[in-house]
Simulated scan of single mutants.
Amino acid sequence: MSTNLSVVKGAYEAFQRGDIPAILEVIADDVEWRVVGPASLPFPRECRNKNEVSAFFKSLAESDDIAVFEPREYIDAGDDIVTLGFVKGTIRSTGEAVESEWIHVMTLKNGLLTRFVEFFDTATRGGH
């Protein structure tokens, strides 16, 4: 397993146990962090630094109760890592159940995440 893949897997493990500070430790000060989706998403769609990424995680926790988060497949291309996974949870404001497969595309430099792009089925959020 490459060092970059180890970093990514460690970040997912930190997310699963709710350890956002551990995730922030492996994010570069200048990061491109994007969630591809409509402006109606209740969490930030674009972040440029650790403070904004921290706010992303706070907004995500406030908007969604995530019951299942499963990274299922990794594609290791050196500095670029692609992860295919699945998420299932509830939108806190409506009680609506949501689930979607997702894709994360990441770039790492010197062991730090410099780019993170997430794609998921935003239609499962019922227009949110």
Rank of each mutant, 00 (worst) to 15 (best):
D65T: 12
G10W: 00
L24Y: 08
K9G: 02
L113Y: 05
L24T: 05
F57E: 02
I75N: 10
S6M: 08
E25R: 14
P21V: 13
T122Q: 03
L84M: 10
L112I: 04
T83H: 01
R17Y: 01
T122I: 04
V105N: 05
G18C: 10
K9D: 02
S93W: 02
A22T: 07
Y74H: 10
K50Y: 04
G10D: 00
R48Y: 08
E118D: 09
V35F: 08
E13Y: 00
D76Y: 03
S2R: 07
A97S: 07
A123V: 04
D80W: 06
F15D: 06
V68S: 03
I91V: 15
D76H: 05
A55S: 04
Y12I: 02
A123L: 11
A39T: 07
V87M: 13
V26L: 02
F57Y: 14
I75D: 11
T107G: 06
E70M: 13
A11Y: 03
K9Y: 00
V36A: 07
E70Q: 13
E99Q: 12
E96L: 10
T124P: 04
A39H: 10
S40T: 15
W102K: 06
H104P: 06
N51L: 10
K109Q: 12
I81M: 08
K109E: 13
T114I: 12
I75C: 09
R72H: 07
G127H: 01
L5W: 09
I103Q: 10
K50G: 02
D121Y: 01
A14K: 05
V35A: 12
H104I: 05
V36T: 11
T107E: 07
N49R: 00
N4D: 12
I27G: 11
R125F: 11
V35G: 08
G37V: 05
I81A: 04
K9I: 01
E118N: 04
E101Y: 08
L113Q: 03
I75T: 11
N51R: 14
F69I: 11
F116H: 14
D76I: 03
S93E: 13
P44W: 05
T122L: 02
V105M: 12
A97T: 10
N49P: 01
V105G: 04
K58Q: 12
I103N: 13
R34F: 08
E73R: 12
E73K: 07
H104G: 09
T124C: 02
G111W: 05
G85R: 07
L108F: 00
E101R: 09
Q16C: 09
R115S: 13
T83D: 07
P42E: 03
R34D: 12
K109N: 06
E62D: 06
E70N: 15
E96T: 14
G78C: 00
E101P: 08
F116Q: 09
S100A: 00
L84R: 09
S2E: 06
L5K: 15
R72V: 08
R92F: 00
N49G: 00
D29Q: 14
V68Y: 06
H128K: 14
W33F: 14
